[in-house]
């Protein structure tokens, strides 16, 4: 009944024996012990489990681990490199785009793909672009700002201020 699969997560190979029904999110969290990606719902609604599969943002609670055999999987744990944080991580931190942090990894992984495809998104494109990720804490304003900041940073443009703006 079980299948032997090898998942390549953040460049490292994890070989495991899984039932076909095992969800990718469980394989990542339990078998590969990478607990940065989370589970927030049962219905592909919240996006807390978002990882990249071959560069595409994916809800790993709705994909079977066996389906990811041989694919390149990227999770929040793989964002930072020896050189430092990924710009999206800096962007979230500097713009106060997280409170409890539970939805944050999924949102950052989604944002990475969004910026990859659309390096210069408008506010509206960002809001629609992260509409598969629920955040209950931040009200989204600062997540939008964080993605805009990251967009500037990744293109070497002048960085927007990260001080809060008040009316």
């Amino acid at each position: 009944m079980t299948k032997k699969i090898t998942l390549k997560i953040n460049g490292a190979e994890h070989t495991m024996e899984v039932e076909p029904r095992m969800l990718l999110i469980h394989a990542i969290r339990e078998n590969a012990s990478l607990t940065g990606s989370h589970i927030g719902c049962d219905t592909s609604s919240c996006g807390a489990c978002t990882v990249l599969i071959d560069g595409k943002s994916a809800k790993s609670c709705t994909i079977l681990a066996v389906q990811a055999q041989g694919k390149e999987i990227a999770t929040v744990e793989g964002l930072a490199t020896a050189e430092g944080l990924h710009p999206i991580q800096e962007g979230f931190h500097l713009n106060h785009a997280l409170h409890c942090g539970f939805c944050t990894p999924g949102l950052m992984m989604r944002a990475v793909e969004l910026l990859e495809k659309n390096p210069n998104p408008t506010e509206d494109e960002i809001r629609w672009g992260i509409s598969g990720n629920l955040c209950r804490c931040t009200g989204y304003n600062n997540i939008v700002s964080a993605i805009q900041w990251t967009s500037a940073k990744m293109q070497g443009k002048e960085l927007p201020s990260t001080e809060p703006k008040f009316v």
Partner: peptide, 12 residues
């Protein structure tokens, strides 16, 4: 397509 589910779902 813009109105179908969300970007992650539309990726698959």
């Amino acid at each position: 397509t813009k109105l179908i589910a969300d970007p992650q779902v539309r990726n698959f």
